[in-house]
Structure formats: C-alpha cells, structure tokens
Design a protein around this nucleic acid. Structure first.
Length: 779
DNA sequence: GCGCCTCGAGTTCG
DNA sequence: CTCGAGGCGC
C-alpha cells in the first residue's frame, strides 16, 4: 500500500521540524516554539506514523520514547578500538609529555587542543549518510554493548546530522553523563519512590544507560559531549583536532564550550589551573583535563605506545580529599582473631561516595598517625576505592586533647586476652572458636563463594544463627531444619525492625528457607581443595589448598599427614606445615571435621597421590624436613649415604659413628630422646613405604601447551570472569598467579585494569586482551 | 643470609 | 588493592 505523496512530505517536514526544536531546546537551551505547539506537532506525527507505519523515518523523534525491553545487550565489535589514555597527576608529567612530543616531532613548540575529561561513560555513535544507526559502550575497548535503543532517548544526540554535506560513515566518540542538577532531581525521585539512590552522577548515568528497558532511560536526563572520531568515510578529516570539534558543532553534535587551543607546557598548565578553579562551578563532574596534539598529521606521526596514544595525555585532578571528624575508634575481630582498629567517621563525601569507615590497619599504624577520637582527619580515597585516613589536622585537635589511642587488652566480643606475638604487626584475640566473632567469621569464610559456595547465607543470617545458638560450628549448618530457619528469620527481622507482616510473610519465608536449605545441601560435595580452603587453616589459602589436594589427593591422607610429609611439598615450609598439622591435631577441629563427614560432607574428585610425590619422598628430603635441630640437608644426605634409613634411625642407639660433627650428633641424640619422636620417625617411615607402594613408577608430567607459562589476570574481561579464564589457562597447563613480576609470561588485561597492567608495561611483560588469550589457548 | 616472588589476610562501598 | 610474611633461589 503506497503512502500519498503529500502525506509523505508532511511527515518528512514534521520530523525535520521537531528535530530542529529538540536541538534548539536541549542543546542550545533556546526554545523556539511553545511547548503546546511542540506537543501538537509531535501528536500529529505519531498519528500519521501509526496510520502509515511503512513510512516511518528512522530519525523520527517518536523513536525517542524508548523501545520495549530486551533480554540482554548485543555485543558490538568496535571497528576502531576505543583505547585508553596515559594518565598524569603532577606538573612534571605534563612537562615530560610536552618534551616527548616535541622530541618526537622535532619541533620547538607544539599547539595542543585542551578539553575536559568528563566523568561519565565513553561511547561511540555511528552515523551512516548522516543518520544515527548505532551506539555502543566502550566495554574493554575492543568489544562493547549495543545501546542504540537507549541512546535514541538522549535528546541532545541528533538522530540526523545537520547540514547538507554529511560523511558516508562517521563514528563519533564521546561521553554520556548526567548533570549534577539532574542527578539530584533523579535521586529525589528515587527517594520519594522508596527506591535506592545513586551514589554519584557517573553511577546514575551508567545505571540509566544500561537499562534493558529503554523507556526507563527515556525518563532520565542524560547528556552527551563529543570529543573524537573513530572512523570517517566519504569526507575530508579536518587538519586539526580543534577543527574536528568545531565541525562536530556544525553537525549538531554537542561539544563542550570549555575547550581551548594552547601552546606548550605553560599553556597546558595554565588551562589545567583555569579549569581546576572552575571545576566546582561546572554543571557536571570532571576528573581532569585531556591534552591532544592539535595537528592530526602530527598525531599520526607520533603513533602509539602499547595501548595508549603518544599524542594525548589525561591530566587528572588529585584524588579528592576531605576533612571529617573521627567519632570513634572501634575494633573488628577477623577470622584469625586479628584485631583491626577502624575509624568511625562523621559521614563525608569524598570523590562522589560517602565515607563512614576507614581501616587503621593495626596498632602501630594508629600510633604512627596518632589518630584519636574527636580528631579532625584528612580522608582520601586511595587507589580509587578504599578510603584511607591520611593524617590528623593537629590544629583542630580538641582541648583538652583526647587520650592517645590504646588497643583494647581484651577482645570486645568474647573478653579473651588480646595477644600480640613478638615481631608481628597484628594483635589477635586468643579466644579461638570460643569467640563468637571468630566463629561467625569462620562460618562466613566456610560458606564463601570460593569455598563451599553456599548461596544465600549472608552475614545477616550467620549473625542470627550464631546468636540464636542454632549453630556453633560449620557442621551444624547441615543439621538446620526449616523450623530453625523460620524461627531465626523471625528473630532477625524483629531485631532489625523489618515489617512484621506475618500473614503475608509465611509463604515468602518458607520459600526463602527452602532455597537456603537446598543451597546448603548442594554444597556437600565440593572439590577437595575448596573444602580444605573452607576449613580456614592458618596460612592455607586457595593456592596452598590446591597444592595439598593436587599432591596428596585424599582428605584422609591430608588429615593425618605428618608435618614432615607436608613440608616436602612445593611452597610449603616449616611455618605452613606446622600450622596444618597442628590444625588437624587439635581435638576441637577433629570433632568439627568428624561432624562434617558425618553430616555427609564428602569432597569429590579424590585421587591417588601425585606421581611426582615419589621424588619428594626421597629419604634425605624427609629427614631434612623433620626439623631436627642442626640436621640440614647435607647432613641428612650424609646419614643416608652412611646406610641409615628412617626406619633404622628410629631405633638408633649409638651416635657419632657417621662422621657427623659432634654437635650435630648430640642434637640428633637429644631429639630422639624426646618422648614420641622415635615413634614419629617410625610412623613416617611406614607411611613413606605405603605411599611408595601406591605410586606409579613412571611420573609422566601432564603436558599442556601452556606449561611453564605464568599468567596474571587483571581487570574485567568482556565475555568471561577472571575465574573462568583462569580455569582455561590451567586446563592448558598454564599457571595463574596474583602478582606481576619478571617471571610473569603474560598479563591478561580487561577493562579498568589497574596497577598490575602498569607494572606489566613497566617490566615489559606481554599484555594480552581476552581475544589474545583465546588465540593463545586455541593453538 | 638477603632479596625476590608469591600467597594470605584484611578492607570499603555500591 | 595493599601490606606483611613465608618460601626459596642465589
């Protein structure tokens, strides 16, 4: 069915007219027609469009109300990657930048385009023949998410570029953000509606843009500033970056007016100071300024270092600091009993988030900074996240001066003594598992995602379960009944003063309790290393737990392994071996473990000890691992070479006949005289024989093509979690480690990678993105 | 015995 | 993310 010519013309006119008014209103802030007239034209267009759906233009303003919800965002691969910029904080960094640019171009003075660094979300907009067709988030720089429907609702973004000479393809880079004023209004609305407020304009903008339902985005007032070109076809690129920005302005794309062209380092610093002064008066938040070499040809000549352009620098404002008052200094009790002092602060906004707590780490730290209750302190958000007390403003200390801080002598939770081992930085509660705080932490650790992974067992419920005396140890989790949980929840809700809508709650609570019971039941068969990690043995983290599981294979063996056997495993030395053996020897722990086993907890994937254990079971190795004073490895070798065995030593009565120095022989004699040690030696010999009989002769090392390679993962990968990527690497024989060093083979970096990426670049370690890793794995 | 490399442990806020 | 400390190579 064809649409009459005059209707088509009218519709085209309406689209153009309405888009012009939207631009005048939202971008120029200068409305040209009354609202009522605008509404009338809009309604007319809507009516025509619904009568003639086949004639709807893709730049029609009616598409701005937001499309229906979608199940998920589509992934978009950027035709030109959206790279990050090098950062600088100090004047010196700017000086270095300018010098490198001048050296690179071999000139005396350079013109720069200077602009704001908006605190929003980077996106790319694609226009084909002047019509907006797609928008994508930055993502990891290589792939982002398709947010076309959401971006359509942003009124300041033109659906059609202005002017008659539009390029065939233009990809515009820019920042989506929310003005401070609109942010305040949105939060007011959220508050009124009883919904959660956003922490800062950036989060609000991100939350609004990433709505699966674009109709919600349409209700949020998002803004946009264009600052660069990704791809251009069918048009001449302006000669300068400032020319590009002017061109954007003519095309109807919003560009910040705060831009400038300046010369040399002095010009850059002048601009920086100027903007720094204006910063708080700007209607939006910025986190610094950006300098770009203005001439496009010069930019091309300078090129890129690794992932960042050499022709640009982001000069950031220093991490925001704020003054606040310490209202109290409390202590927290950790899983290991560690007593950590925490400063409670009068809430203060630092860099967009409200800070109320800051760790003071340990006793020495508090005393070094001499933080006292009532003090005014400078708080900073270090490393972008964790609040930190920088220093005390002594002039503001109240008088009379408050007392110097003293760490409590007894645990605030259980009253046990607080002890600080010689040479250690942390003080600990000596109460062990009799301390409710430590019990809670132990249970929380046990239930954690990387351990037994019991979903739904959060802090709140753990607190209540312990306080209601429903659980004392982790094994009790597996005995909980529906009634226990319902009773506990009722108490927890009451305590928190949550709605006592008892009638309605019945069903909901039952469902909740059922789910939790199912989650607990489902956690019964974890991989062995997770169970070991979950037990919370001192010095046994994820990595050591894995070593134990890999090498010894069976829980029963690990439980009963003598210290010397543990000691010969890689990365397990005296301290760690002792901690493990002691843990399993402790009667209370034995009880807890037996209870767990009785409750049906059974690790899956148990196996025979690793074949390479054969080499570790060398008698010299074991003898040296026994920790007999003065009996170092060469001495142990001497003994074995003289024909001794572990077995024979256990029954040895004549000393000093193996050419050992007298003091070594005496030490050995004294050690054997200690009750129990001969038995220990004999038992070790027996265990060794048993293990050897179980172990296969040939120790074929499993070979993956990544074996011998060490990886470090950092940042957010586009399509998988770091854990998932780590599993793939390990499956291919590679090793995943937590910190970057010279020995690291590759660093796999995703979005918002932090110091590890910087370290990698500093050390010249190869940096891969997810695609690069997949390529390596795929070989 | 020293220094590098890892791992463990503790922490904040949305 | 950072710090402290254990393990191990040199």
């Amino acid at each position: 069915m064809s649409v009459p010519q005059e209707v088509q013309q009218r519709m085209a006119w309406l689209v153009e007219e309405l888009n012009r008014h939207i631009y005048n209103y939202h971008v120029l802030d200068a409305p040209t027609i009354p609202d009522a007239e605008y509404d009338r034209l809009f309604k007319e267009l809507q009516d025509l469009e619904s009568a003639h759906p086949q004639a709807v233009k893709n730049d029609s303003p009616t598409s701005r109300v937001g499309a229906a919800p979608i199940p998920e965002f589509r992934q978009v691969t950027h035709s030109v990657p959206m790279l990050s910029l090098n950062n600088g904080f100090a004047d010196e960094d700017v000086d270095n930048f300018d010098r490198r640019v001048r050296d690179g171009l071999d000139v005396h003075s350079v013109d720069y385009s200077a602009e704001l660094k908006f605190d929003g979300l980077a996106i790319t907009l694609r226009y084909e023949n002047g019509v907006f067709v797609q928008a994508a988030t930055r993502g990891d720089g290589y792939t982002g998410e398709d947010v076309t429907a959401n971006i359509r609702t942003v009124k300041v973004i033109p659906l059609r570029l202005h002017g008659d000479h539009v390029p065939a393809v233009l990809e515009v880079r820019g920042e989506v953000l929310m003005f401070k004023e609109d942010f305040a209004r949105l939060n007011q609305r959220q508050r009124d509606a009883g919904q959660k407020e956003f922490a800062n304009p950036r989060n609000a903008a991100a939350g609004s843009l990433r709505q699966l339902d674009a109709r919600i985005t349409a209700q949020r007032k998002l803004r946009f500033f264009a600052y660069g070109i990704g791809l251009l076809e069918g048009a001449e690129l302006p000669e300068t970056h400032s020319g590009v920005l002017d061109w954007f302005d003519r095309l109807g794309l919003p560009v910040s007016k705060e831009r400038a062209v300046v010369t040399g380092c002095q010009g850059l610093l002048g601009y920086y100071r100027d903007i720094g002064q204006k910063r708080s008066a700007l209607p939006y938040e910025i986190d610094g300024v950006v300098y770009k070499v203005d001439r496009v040809a010069d930019q091309a000549a300078l090129g890129f270092v690794s992932r960042a352009p050499r022709f640009a620098l982001a000069h950031k404002f220093p991490a925001e600091e704020a003054l606040t008052v310490v209202s109290a200094i409390d202590v927290q009790v950790g899983r290991t009993g560690a007593i950590t002092p925490v400063a409670r602060l009068v809430p203060v906004s630092v860099g967009g988030v409200t800070v109320t707590n800051a760790t003071l780490h340990n006793e020495d730290e508090v005393l070094r900074k001499d933080v006292r209750v009532g003090d005014t302190v400078i708080v900073r958000r270090a490393g972008d996240v964790i609040p930190e007390v920088l220093s005390v403003v002594l002039e503001r200390r109240p008088s009379p001066a408050p007392m110097r801080y003293e760490l409590p002598k007894t645990c605030p939770v259980c009253g046990s003594h607080v002890v600080r081992e010689e040479g250690e930085a942390v003080a600990r509660c000596s109460g062990g598992l009799t301390c409710a705080a430590q019990r809670k932490e132990a249970i929380r650790h046990f239930a954690g995602r990387r351990m037994m992974d019991i979903e739904g067992l959060g802090d709140r419920y753990i607190d209540s379960l312990v306080e209601c005396n429903l659980i004392h140890g982790v094994a009790d989790l597996y005995r909980l009944t529906l009634d226990d949980l319902l009773m506990m929840k009722r108490l927890a809700d009451e305590r928190e003063g949550t709605t006592p809508e008892t009638v309605k709650q019945g069903k909901v609570a039952t469902k909740w309790a059922d789910n939790l019971l199912a989650a607990i039941a489902a956690s019964r068969n974890p991989p062995l290393e997770r169970l070991l990690f979950a037990l919370g043995i001192r010095h046994v983290g994820e990595s050591t737990a894995k070593t134990l599981a890999d090498w010894l294979g069976r829980f029963e063996l690990i439980r009963q392994a003598p210290e010397a056997l543990l000691r010969v495993l890689p990365d397990i030395g005296g301290t760690v071996a002792e901690a493990i053996a002691e843990f399993f020897a402790e009667e209370k722990n034995q009880g807890a473990i037996n209870a767990l086993l009785a409750a049906g907890v059974a690790p899956q994937g148990e196996h025979a000890p690793k074949a390479q254990l054969r080499e570790k079971l060398d008698e010299v190795n074991l003898l040296a691992a026994l920790g007999i004073p003065k009996l170092t490895e060469p001495r142990a070798r001497q003994l074995i070479a003289a024909g001794q065995t572990l077995e024979s030593l256990a029954h040895l009565n004549v000393f000093g006949v193996f050419g050992l120095p007298a003091n070594v022989a005496t030490a050995l004699e004294e050690w054997l005289a200690v009750p129990g040690n001969r038995e220990k030696l004999a038992a070790l010999a027996k265990l060794r024989a048993e293990l050897l009989s179980q172990l296969p002769e040939a120790a074929a090392a499993p070979e993956g093509h990544l074996s011998g390679k060490t990886f470090v993962l950092t940042g957010t990968l586009p399509t998988m979690s770091r854990d998932a990527a780590g599993a793939l690497i390990e499956a291919a024989g590679g090793k995943v480690s937590g910190s970057v060093s010279k020995k690291t083979s590759y660093v796999v970096a995703g979005a918002e990678a932090g110091s590890k990426l910087a370290k990698a670049e500093e050390l010249g370690v190869t940096v891969l993105d997810e695609a690069g890793l997949m390529a390596l794995l795929g070989q």
